[in-house]
Design a protein around this nucleic acid. Structure first.
Lengths: 227, 227
DNA sequence: GTCTATAGTCGGATAGAC
DNA sequence: GTCTATCCGACTATAGAC
């Protein structure tokens, strides 16, 4: 009963609440979500939110922390693997551009999989909401995930394009690449209607990855880009 | 008092409510927004929302209709101008690709200006929310604005890339281009932090347009793209 | 058309028994 | 740790005077 895999009753309650919270907060937003609905979805008593998380706000923070943890588990290993390959290649070596493009594809394929891969789609909704009106929880998201990914992508864009890594142009191009991936999750309804998709399953994901790779490779031609 | 430019007291009230609603709904979302806050922002009595719009839901619909109207005023003339130029050029004429790229830049510059140009930024927030959880108001938005723009952009992408206009690949590429523009407005907080911007003013807009043009031109190389 | 006042509802938090 | 019961505040909608 006290080994690492088993959970006390309280742990089970906390976990059920966090999962339900991701779903309900993601669909309804912070204010529209009700603690009653979350408790019902989790199958626990409403008063337990106060006991375990201090209140609605605390539960929200718990949900964001859960997202950050799960994203880190999936994306940080990829990011570190990419960083390692980068470190192994000397500056100005031939084939820099091809390597950078390949590593960018690696990162964004992982991002695609993380977002679309079977997890509560509430994640994307929550993150999008934080983008519009950041709460204190956004700091967690940005510092632990987004800033790291963006720094890595910006560095790869610099390698692929010949732009200065710390230039505004290079940073803008890095964000544009994120936009090419995230648009399908952020503009969910428009994507569904324009492509006639019901959702993003394995086939759809494969099509997005293919087109992304083509667009990416074309975007940074051999000779470097204009500043 | 009854000529076209002057407004009755009731018209003034409706207009003030719609403007305030765009702001408040955009910032807080439908549920979190309160009719009290909207009425206060509009400087009118809360009970007048019921009188003029039937209730909170009716006011929301009025706000969406206002967005559609204003976007149409700004974007439809550009879209028609682009369509006219397209109609004037014979199929398979030389220089198709260059023309398509130029027209794409025209459209997206107009989109950038419309979004960033001095209007209530509540627009983008409202549209993003509708993307995640479409209400009946999304039909208005999609049919009157998004579908038209997407159809035009998809056609131009086909011209620039050599892809079949009705192919899935072509439609995906069209959405990706939207993503390259919209990411700066949708991922507002991340944009601000990664670029060190406080907001998107004229200088920032110019930088975005420049980088977008470069990325767009590179994305569709002379020889056509892979399917 | 506009106002005040309020009815009716619902949500977050919490006290207190178990 | 969990449950029931409840308090209190805030919200939308509306009745009715002007």
């Amino acid at each position: 009963m006290t080994d690492a895999t088993s959970q006390s009753r309280g742990d089970q309650t906390r976990e059920a609440l966090v999962h339900a919270a991701l779903d309900v907060f993601g669909h309804a937003g912070f204010d529209a979500a009700t603690t009653r609905a979350i408790a019902a979805a989790a199958g626990v008593n409403q008063a337990l939110i106060g006991y375990h998380f201090g209140g609605k706000q605390g539960l929200y923070r718990g949900a964001i922390e859960h997202i950050v943890q799960r994203m880190q588990e999936r994306l940080l290993p990829v990011a570190e693997q990419v960083s390692a390959k980068l470190a192994a290649v000397p500056r100005d070596a031939p084939g820099q551009r091809a390597l950078a493009l390949q590593l960018l594809v690696t990162i964004f394929d992982a991002l695609h999989d993380t977002i679309a891969g079977g997890f509560a789609e509430g994640w994307v909704r929550l993150i999008l909401r934080e983008q519009q009106d950041p709460t204190e929880a956004f700091g967690l998201l940005y510092n632990h995930m987004l800033a790291r990914l963006l720094a890595l992508v910006t560095r790869l864009v610099a390698m692929a394009s010949g732009l200065q890594e710390d230039s505004e142009a290079c940073r803008i191009r890095a964000l544009m690449i994120f936009g090419q991936v995230m648009v399908f999750h952020g503009a969910r309804a428009t994507t569904a209607l324009h492509l006639g998709w019901q959702g993003i399953g394995p086939d759809q994901l494969a099509a997005l990855k293919t087109q992304f790779r083509h667009a990416l490779e074309a975007q940074f031609p051999e000779g470097g880009v204009q500043p």
